[in-house]
Simulated assay, not measured.
Amino acid sequence: MEGQDSRKTRDDVVTVTVHHTGEPILIETTTGRSLRSVLLEADLSPYTSLTAYANCGGRGICATCGVRVRDTTEPTHWHDRLADRFGYPRLSCQIAVMEDMTIELVEEKRVWGRREPKS
C-alpha cells in the first residue's frame, strides 16, 4: 500500500476470550480475521481429533469447526444462522472477529456438536 501507513493501531486490536479448560485464554488479534484462523494460530483447535484432518479448510461447508459464541455476534453465513437459531455450535470459519468476543470450545462433539437449548 504505497502512501499509506500500514501499521496497526490499538483500535484494530480486539480480544477473543476462549473458555476451554481451566482459566479463560485471552487472544489478541486484529479486526476482520476469521475466528477459525485465530484459534488455530493460538494452538486451540475447534476440531475433534477426526475432523482436524478431514475438514473443508474454512470454506463453511463441512460444519466441523463449531464453537459456542457467548456474545451477541450476529451470524452472517446461512449455516451459522441456522446453528444460532436452533442451538447448535456456530462455525468458527464463518465468524469474522470484529470486536471483543467470548467463545467456548465444544468439548463433547462427534463431528459438529450437540444441540444446546436456546435461553
Rank of each mutant, 00 (worst) to 15 (best):
G113W: 06
R114V: 14
S34C: 11
V97D: 03
I25E: 10
R10I: 15
G58N: 04
N55L: 05
D100Q: 03
R115D: 07
T9C: 07
V67S: 00
E104I: 04
S37L: 11
V16D: 01
V16I: 12
R10T: 14
G32L: 06
V69F: 05
T48N: 08
S45P: 07
V111T: 10
R81E: 15
R68E: 12
Y53C: 09
E28G: 04
I61S: 13
E99V: 05
L91H: 01
A42D: 10
R85S: 11
R33F: 06
Q94I: 01
D71Q: 03
P117Q: 09
C65R: 00
E99L: 02
Y47L: 06
V67W: 02
Q94A: 01
P24H: 03
R114L: 15
S37I: 10
P46Y: 03
C65G: 01
L26S: 12
H19Q: 13
R81I: 15
L50Q: 12
I103Q: 01
R7Y: 09
G60S: 05
A63M: 11
W78R: 08
T51I: 09
R36H: 07
G57W: 05
A52C: 13
S119L: 14
R90C: 03
V97Y: 01
T29N: 08
R70H: 11
R33M: 11
R85C: 09
Y88A: 06
E99W: 00
A42C: 05
A96L: 13
M98K: 10
K118W: 08
T30Q: 08
R33C: 09
V111L: 13
S49C: 13
M98Q: 14
E41L: 10
I61Y: 10
L44W: 04
H77Q: 12
T21M: 14
G66V: 05
C93A: 05
L26H: 13
V67Q: 02
L40Q: 07
P46G: 03
T31C: 13
M1I: 12
P75V: 06
C93Y: 01
I25M: 07
T9D: 14
R36E: 02
E74K: 04
P75L: 06
V69R: 00
G22R: 00
